[in-house]
Amino acid sequence: MAEAKIVLDGLSKSFAGRAVLDGVNLTVEKGESLAIIGQSGSGKSVTLKCILGLLQPDSGSILLDGEEIVGAKGARLERIRAKFGMLFQGSALFDSMPIWRNVTFALTHGQRIDGARMRKIAEENLERVGLPARILDLRPSELSGGMQKRVALARAIAPRPEIIFFDEPTTGLDPIRADVINDLIVSLVDDLGITALTITHDMASARKIAHRVAMLYEGKIIWRGPRDRLYDSGNPYVDQFVQGRAEGPIQ
């Protein structure tokens, strides 16, 4: 039996009295790739931000390698965050610095050190996401949205963290690029043994990269199962969602 890497138990979060997460229970196993699907605004990104300590959950517990991490501060929070890489939905690249500084930020923490070595590392990581070395010295604003996304992906994988969160890694990419990213995520999980948690609206991608899929609806995980069951889950909500029908139980 695989050991649990992340366990969410009764995770709840409201904004201005509106419950976004309302008792989320979810386990991510070590070395597993899990995809979360769910409607826009259902709280997928909020879930990731709670785990990373960027948002404080109102209640519930988050275990990382068996350790409670809700409310962690200071050096302990730093140590916890060192295990994670995060691809933000909007890329969140630092627009005041060139691409290569962005990609190596997790290694330099913004210090101007080791220029030559860092450029080399940046180049290698960009290559993994299918970007050429000629963009090393450009600024994020000089790249297309899809390229920015891939630079952000390179930044997230550069320190080879144990766990990577991908918030919509293929949104905004053409189908070929999207598949390159799918392959990359698969190889990170299979070859490097990282644990991956991916938010996606792209069912093809979910089926390719994830071992298991979970669906978030009205603040709870209403279904989880292996990827081959995605299209015959027997759950009317999941059916409606994956088939993209306007009629059904989800209004």
């Binding site: 931000k49 990373l52 960027l54 965050r81 890489g85 995060m86 939905q89 969140a92 930044r155």
Partner: peptide, 13 residues
């Protein structure tokens, strides 16, 4: 607003 401050935190700076 573009989550760069969040990114900074996750990159432990």
């Amino acid at each position: 607003v573009t989550e760069q401050l969040d990114a900074l935190a996750t990159l432990r700076t």
